[in-house]
Nucleic acid binder design. Structure first.
Lengths: 297, 297
DNA sequence: CAAATGTTTTTTATTGATAAAAATCATTTG
DNA sequence: CAAATGATTTTTATCAATAAAAAACATTTG
């Protein structure tokens, strides 16, 4: 096998969505238009159109693409098929080390991982190299990769830098003029928080994603690529943390939403001391939740 | 070609050093011993010994390895041959982007870089992935690598985080007891600084390496992998900065040494305010030197 | 019998090949 | 003739093969 055609498959599914949302007989937009919508190249769009044509879902002649029928469930590609190998391996690997109780200092073996995740060795290699920025694994030249482990030390070191970056970032809010774009983003975030709070009973698990966006928005005012990069690490670690630590999830998330709201109010106050207080309080809650989930394992 | 045997070649040269430093007729130590000395595996040591035996430099019979003669210059491997491909490419690439005036947003092409640096495409790929942590290049899936460039913004963002980390780290010195190992390290560093100052006329270019060790020692007290990791980035960038910005090098380095000495004195004083003052002063000098070298290009 | 050497197995570093996807260039059409 | 399509070229993602290096196992020797 070579490069996987997940882009094609995902785009294909998205095209089916587009088609099913319209009446039979309608025409599809131009190739460039579709390419922009799906965020893929026109080359791939044409492959998709060609495939849809072969299946008799559309009739494609030059610039006229007519919808002939809606899709059947079986014609869609499954979710498993639509994410690229490099993405799949990330999820599998994180699940393996964060869930699997692999002890610290375990040595990792490229070939074995390749077999385990059913990918080529180069893919594993590239993944491990890019993953090393998370600080969970390590290697020296000509030696094996070593899992440092998702330990208490890890959580503390991660949280420490996180707090330093975020406390530094939010100090900027004191001086932001009323028309600074950050305020508008905060407005929208606040709204989303309130709406989530209103439906907390059923939608509490959506908090994870909102949390990531909230903190990313705060640190983004630093306009510093190293801070942004680090925030990505935080997001991924917390994403998996939320995904697996389901104990008291609703209560934890509800409490966190309320902390966010107080935090937002503090930012709006432009009072440096108050901002600092709320930031410290919330970040410390977050750190403790992360730590607790480790100790419970 | 497959895996390059640079480890062998480097070890071979080191063995020649060992041999030339002793009289003909002397015996070499055991294999395990040599392996530890050269920091390579016994397997490679045996290959080296075997090669030395074939060349008639030693006589190797079981555990007896007798030196037959000293080496000739031509028998050594050249420096070029003794560093692994992955290391060579790093130097070449940095030279290319930091020296070559490549404009920001230039698109990089794996195949072209592979040809340019005379390595395989996978090696380039792996290098680019690992190099991306420096924040100088960037890529999105299925798209090309883009050079963000060694710009003023880069230097500022880098310096900003550096200052945050180091200022935070040196705050710890206030509370270190007299027997904390950091003091001893500082003592030795101070000595090296004074000695360098005494021979500044001739040895000024050795400051680069001392500078890296000095700052690494300071930030290492944070005991935080993300800080340490970041310090590596700083070291490499400054290493290349020192290597190429030769203007007023002696004066700059002498001034920096004096700042380091004041900085060390401040740390010893355990006076938080004074430490802060000297840290800020020196880090700001460093930032400005880095910036100036950019603007002069 | 512990430490050194000899032998075999495992693992990494590096390459090149190939299909997918993107990018570019050429042609058509309203 | 600008915007869309058609055809071609370039570039990336992924894999599998192989020699170097490390690691593990087995045997010898003082």
């Amino acid at each position: 096998m070579t490069k996987s055609n997940t882009r094609f498959k995902e785009g294909f599914n998205q095209c089916l969505d587009l088609i099913d949302g319209q009446d039979v007989g309608t025409e599809l937009p131009g190739e460039v238009n579709i390419a922009e919508m799906l965020n893929i190249s026109r080359t791939t769009v044409r492959n998709i159109l060609s495939s849809l044509n072969d299946l008799g879902i559309i009739d494609w002649q030059g610039r006229v693409k007519t919808i002939l029928r809606h899709s059947k469930k079986a014609e869609r590609f499954s979710d498993r098929e639509t994410s690229p190998v490099s993405e799949k391996i990330e999820g599998k690997f994180l699940e393996w080390i964060l869930q699997g109780d692999i002890p610290p200092n375990t040595q990792l073996n490229e070939l074995e991982l390749a077999r385990q995740f059913d990918v080529g060795t180069s893919t594993v290699r590239e993944f491990l190299i890019s993953f090393s920025r998370f600080g969970l694994i390590e290697k020296k030249l000509n030696h094996r990769w070593v899992l440092r482990g998702f330990t208490k030390e890890y959580a503390l070191e991660l949280s420490y830098v996180r707090e330093m970056f975020e406390l530094d970032a939010v100090r900027n809010f004191v001086d932001f003029p009323d028309d600074h774009p950050a305020w508008e983003k905060l407005d929208r975030l606040e709204e989303e928080h309130r709406s989530l709070l209103d439906h907390i009973e059923t939608r509490f698990s959506r908090f994870s994603e909102l949390d990531a966006r909230f903190h990313a928005t705060l640190t983004s005012v630093s306009k510093n690529r190293f801070v942004t990069e680090f925030q990505d690490i935080i997001s991924l670690i917390f994403h998996f943390h939320y995904q697996w630590n389901k104990k008291d999830e609703k209560e934890r998330n509800e409490a966190a939403i309320r902390e966010h709201l107080t935090y937002i109010a503090a930012l709006r106050s432009r009072d440096g001391a108050q901002i600092q207080t709320e930031a410290v309080k919330h970040l410390s809650t977050a750190r403790q939740t992360l730590l607790r989930s480790l100790l419970e394992n």
